[in-house]
Design a protein around this nucleic acid. Structure first.
Lengths: 113, 113
DNA sequence: TCACTTAGGGACTAATTATTCACCTACTTT
DNA sequence: AAAGTAGGTGAATAATTAGTCCCTAAGTGA
């Protein structure tokens, strides 16, 4: 279980971190911003370094926090689809800023090498 | 030791996370953006829920990653000052976005209650 | 009938992070 | 001489995260 820190009322960054701290959450959200709808196996392919147990756990937490929505289709074999909720979408500026920073960094690393 | 994940080359968010994941890093950076220069004890006061061992470790990592700069004044008792490097400052859009999101969230929580 | 499919869950262990607590330096104040 | 100060560090422990391996459901195709 995640511990929710009793944030210093003056610290908005802390409030934000409650939801998105964790190593994979923003990455998952990033892929959902890019694709809007992804199946479990598609997410697995996009995050090959995260094993499925972990991925599953992170998705559960994101769902519990109402950041993503899971739709289960009772077909065989079963199919699931994950989408961002409106609440989840409110994190877009943050994920965007992270994306931009990372792209820049990757560019510079390539050049400097 | 932090593990640096061999990022999927296509995942800029991962690149970003290498530097700022961790529970307190962005909070520390946030305070340094607000104040530009802070002593160890001032940071302690701003993050009362983080003990100083942890604070010290996070500061060390941030310094190692060249995100902050530490200036030691050899007076008695010793005095230190932390500032953001230029590299550290490049994270401003991210920390800003987190600040804005958190402020909004705090506002809404207040209203909804 | 056997194997294969997708999307996980359960039990367990390993690795990493966070936290506590006591201790240090080198001088100043009481 | 004892206590206080700022800014830490080391050892030990607690808590959290990550990873492995095996299991299930309910068809489909060979």
């Amino acid at each position: 279980m995640r511990k929710i820190y009793n944030c210093d009322p003056g610290c908005p960054v802390q409030s934000t971190l409650q939801f998105i701290s964790g190593k994979w959450k923003t990455v998952i959200m990033y892929h959902l911003f890019k694709n809007s709808k992804l199946r479990f196996s598609e997410l697995q392919r996009k995050l090959p370094y995260v094993n499925k147990r972990m991925l599953s756990k992170q998705l559960l937490e994101l769902e519990k926090d109402n950041i993503i929505h899971k739709e289960i289709y009772p077909v065989v074999p079963v199919k699931t689809e994950y989408t961002l909720t409106n609440f989840g979408k409110s994190f877009e500026p943050i994920v965007n800023a992270m994306e931009i920073w990372g792209e820049n960094f990757n560019q510079n690393s390539k050049r400097d090498h």
